[in-house]
Simulated scan of single mutants.
Amino acid sequence: MAIASSATVLFCCAKPNFRRIPSQSRSSSPLTTLNESGIRSRSLIHDPITLSGLIGTGLMAGTFITAGPDSTAMAAVDSLQLSEPANALSLPTWAIHVSSVVEWITAMALVWKYGERKGYESWKGLSWGMVPLLGGALCACTWHFFYNDESLEVLVALQAALTVFGNITLCIAAFRINKLSSKIEVSEKP
């Protein structure tokens, strides 16, 4: 049942690559077929996304076959699951952790780019002020990656120190931006 539904989803969602053929050329290569309307479509097997889906479906089929005829489909799926400690983070929690780090790095890059384009060095300072907080986030992710191991508790203290230091650097950077904005407003007044 699961194998059939995977294959059905795969072939229903596959998007063939269509392109028009000039009317004078009617030859087709072995990889393509020509239908009556003059549209050439690539074979589904030569599409990398479809091919990876087919391989995945084959691997799932192999898993169910190796599980044996007496076992149920759920037993085969359960045999694939890894055993993790009780304090392991769930997949949604990991998604939040990783996306937060990626967003922070993106924000740092955008702040830096804004400072370069406008010529405001204080905005680049804001980007530098964000670095300690990134270090704290990486400490937290590392500690969670190793299932909150007690031997790595130093990472918790390092994260706390980097968070305090990062908040101070952000405060200084914000003060510098405010100071620059005040100078710009004074110089723009007639």
Rank of each mutant, 00 (worst) to 15 (best):
C141Q: 12
V131C: 13
F146W: 07
A95L: 15
R40I: 12
L31T: 12
W123V: 15
I96C: 04
S99R: 15
D70Q: 08
S28V: 15
A61R: 07
A107T: 13
T72Q: 06
E153M: 12
E153S: 15
F165E: 00
A157Q: 11
G62N: 10
K124M: 12
T32Q: 11
T72Y: 10
M74P: 03
G62V: 00
G166S: 01
G119K: 01
G58T: 13
N148F: 07
S25Y: 15
S28H: 11
S99N: 07
N167W: 07
L158A: 14
V154G: 01
L91Y: 07
T66H: 10
T163L: 05
S52K: 15
F145N: 13
A61Q: 04
T106W: 02
S100Q: 12
Y114D: 14
P69Y: 06
V154N: 11
L31M: 10
V77Q: 10
L155Q: 03
G53L: 09
V77A: 01
A73S: 13
K113D: 00
I96Y: 14
L54Y: 11
P92H: 11
S27C: 05
G136C: 02
L134E: 03
A161Q: 10
P92G: 02
L138H: 01
I65F: 06
N87C: 10
L80M: 13
E150T: 14
V102F: 11
G136R: 08
T163W: 04
V131G: 06
I105D: 08
T57Q: 05
L158N: 01
P69Q: 12
S52H: 14
N35W: 06
P85R: 02
T63S: 08
S83N: 08
V131A: 11
S122Q: 09
V111T: 14
I65W: 10
S83T: 13
S90K: 14
W143A: 00
A75S: 13
S71I: 09
L34Q: 03
S27L: 05
K124Q: 03
I49N: 10
P85C: 07
T72V: 10
S29R: 14
W128F: 12
L80P: 00
G119C: 02
A107H: 04
E121V: 12
W104C: 00
R40D: 00
P85N: 09
N148V: 08
S41L: 09
S99I: 02
E150Y: 10
S28M: 11
S37E: 14
L133T: 09
G119F: 04
V164S: 00
D78Q: 11
F165A: 03
D78M: 12
G38N: 08
C139W: 03
T32L: 11
P30N: 11
